[in-house]
Simulated assay, not measured.
Amino acid sequence: MNIELYPLKFEPIYQYRLWGGRKLANLLSKPLPNDGPIGEAWILSDRKDHASKVIDGSLKGYSITQLMKEFPKELMGRLAGRFDRFPLLLKFLDCKEVLSVQVHPSDDQKTYIPKGDTGKTEAWVVLETGNDSRIYAGLKNGTDKQNLRQAIQNHSLADKLHSFIPQSGDAVFIHSGTVHTLGGTVVFEVQENSDVTFRLYDWDRIDSKTGKPRDLQVDQALACIDFNQVDIGPVKAVIETHHTNTEKLFDNEHFILWRMKYKSPFKVGVKNEPTILVCLEGSAKVVCNANHYPISKGDVMLLPADIGECHVHPDAQINLLQIAIPGKDKSKRS
């Protein structure tokens, strides 16, 4: 099939969560379903059960799964062949109530990962906070497997967790093996393309849909915890030397993420690599090969590797995240 790829936008996939709310309606243009709690919008997902679909252009209706299969080189460039699925999962979370206390396995803990899946390292950018906002990230010093299990049994697990009150704009890195949860916040989340979660504790809640508590996986969770992950706080952004309106928030083996705030035109994208743009505030035109593609608050846009560099022309000030997938030798990637 002779189709030229272009900047691709995807339809968000909403997910019911008992801890969710209705605030994603303020972030995304797609209406929320019915009147239940919506905790997550999966804005770029290559999962079997939830695959994102292109919303416009000649590839409208194509899933990211189909694109990876039919246009691997055009989409992924020098990364083609490394991944069976698109390697990242992107979400917006509306955590009206606190999530379960949970942990995700690392890539090398194969015993706890379903075949074809990976571990899960993730990161958050805080978009909105409230009076009850709190992020739990890592354990308190001195916590071990024995006293943690005892705290779960005594319903006092929160006493073993490090926590802080987040501010809008905070960026938090959650390495696999880190005990974590959050509540009273709206965040953007980038993570490995994995849905493996083990719950330690769910605050003794009852799911209104089932009338029962949600299942816990305490033994698996304890086996996957990295007890060295303690007292995790917001990361310190790194201001780019020649681009003071650009700051690097995360740089690890799974993803690199920059936050860009500009009023005048600026460059995005990299030759022969895919780039993801997520618009947090404002609107703009993304100019590629003399064509203009609109992007506005809540949109995710995937720039295929074939496109390379593009220019963003903001309508006013724009707050944009740019996400890259590191190559095998991350040290050579700027």
Rank of each mutant, 00 (worst) to 15 (best):
L5E: 04
Y6Q: 12
F10K: 01
E11C: 08
Q15G: 00
Y16E: 08
Y16R: 12
R17S: 05
L28E: 01
P31D: 06
P31Y: 00
L32P: 05
L32Q: 05
N34V: 00
A41W: 00
L44N: 01
A51K: 10
A51I: 03
A51L: 05
A51N: 06
D56R: 14
M68P: 03
M68L: 10
K69W: 07
F71D: 13
F83A: 00
P87S: 13
L89N: 11
L89M: 09
L90D: 01
L90C: 09
F92D: 08
F92H: 06
D94A: 02
V98Y: 07
V98I: 12
Q102M: 11
Q102S: 11
T111F: 09
I113K: 01
P114L: 10
D132M: 11
R134F: 13
I135L: 15
K140M: 08
K140V: 03
N141I: 13
L148P: 08
I152M: 12
Q153P: 03
N154L: 14
N154R: 14
H155P: 07
H155W: 10
I165S: 14
S168D: 11
D170N: 15
V179C: 11
V179A: 04
T181S: 15
L182F: 10
V187Q: 09
Q191C: 13
S194I: 14
D195Y: 07
F198K: 11
D204A: 11
R205C: 02
K209Y: 05
P213T: 09
P213N: 09
R214E: 08
D215P: 06
D215V: 10
V218C: 06
V218G: 06
C224Y: 07
V230W: 07
I232Y: 09
I232N: 08
V238N: 03
E240R: 15
T244Y: 06
N245M: 11
F250D: 03
F250Y: 14
E253D: 09
L257Q: 05
Y262F: 03
F266R: 02
F266L: 04
K267V: 02
V270N: 05
I276Y: 09
V287T: 07
V287R: 06
C288E: 09
N291S: 13
K297I: 09
K297T: 15
D299Q: 05
L302K: 06
G308M: 06
E309N: 07
A316N: 06
N319H: 02
N319K: 13
I325Q: 02
I325W: 03
I325R: 01
P326L: 03
K330Q: 11
S331D: 08
R333K: 08
